[in-house]
Design a protein around this nucleic acid. Structure first.
Ligand SMILES: [Zn+2]
Ligand SMILES: [Zn+2]
Ligand SMILES: [Zn+2]
Ligand SMILES: [Zn+2]
Lengths: 131, 131
DNA sequence: GCAATTGATGTAATAACATTACATTTACAT
DNA sequence: ATGTAAATGTAATGTTATTACATCAATTGC
């Protein structure tokens, strides 16, 4: 999945997120795209839904915001669980994968016959630069 | 921390959550407490803030809802990171602690000089009973 | 080509979740 | 009793997300 096959609105939203140095809310994205003809939240949410589906964007559940994937070409989203650190001061987000964590979570779920869907791992705190 | 030393509003909110078999949104709690004199969201949010602080309640970030802690007397909240499974069909929530996961997350944060604050781990899916 | 279908878009309205601001009351220590 | 901190009441507002419905564009089958 590359950026080429995105529709106009998807491309615009992805572009805004890609160039941002911190996560953005849907409404912030909307504001940034007013000059490009965006008028309503739904235009943003629809594009985000697709981008999430493509694995180009992640939703940060704990802050109701969205970030471009740090390595969209690796199919992040077929790569297992993505964990995040989120700096509450500057917004810096770091993505990582940990197979040990993933295995432990899967083992717990399996032991309870729980069928795992989307899993969220988010560490909020302060990054090195802001400490 | 026992239920005794809660204020009236805190006690009412905790009671509603304790007797619910699934997570509740703040506005659902408000509706359930209208007959007890609750009139405004803030009454619920203020009580929830305190209950979260006391470790009697958890907030599920991925579904904007709240649950009573499964083992409030063990000081869940001084016990390290709490992880959850959340059934998207019936709302069943299971709480668990895993020191291996916690150690891995701490190690990652330490390696990046990231100062860890609140950490969220939530697995959404389908419970055994709903499969 | 052209109808039928599907996916994407535009727009308005509304729903759901959360906070700010300010006035008042209660609990409690001095 | 008085001063202080915590809790409460109420209204207004801010923020995040969805529903509903109309239109437009790309694709497919004929
Ligand atoms: Zn990613
Ligand atoms: Zn920072
Ligand atoms: Zn707990
Ligand atoms: Zn279930």
């Amino acid at each position: 999945m590359t950026t080429q096959q995105l529709t106009k609105n998807q491309g615009l939203v992805f572009d805004v997120l890609s160039h941002s140095d911190s996560p953005l809310s849907a409404y912030t994205i909307l504001d940034k795209l007013r000059d490009n003809g965006f008028r309503a939240p739904l235009q943003v949410y629809r594009a985000l839904d697709k981008l999430l589906e493509f694995g180009l964007v992640h939703r940060l559940e704990s802050i109701n915001a969205f970030v471009a994937c740090a390595h969209p070409h690796e199919g992040c989203h077929n790569h297992g669980i993505t964990a995040f650190t989120i700096c509450e001061t500057c917004g810096q987000v770091t993505e990582f994968h940990d197979h040990v964590i993933e295995d432990r979570l899967k083992a717990f779920a399996k032991g309870r016959n729980f069928k795992t869907g989307k899993t969220t791992i988010e560490i909020r705190g302060t990054c090195a630069g802001c400490a």
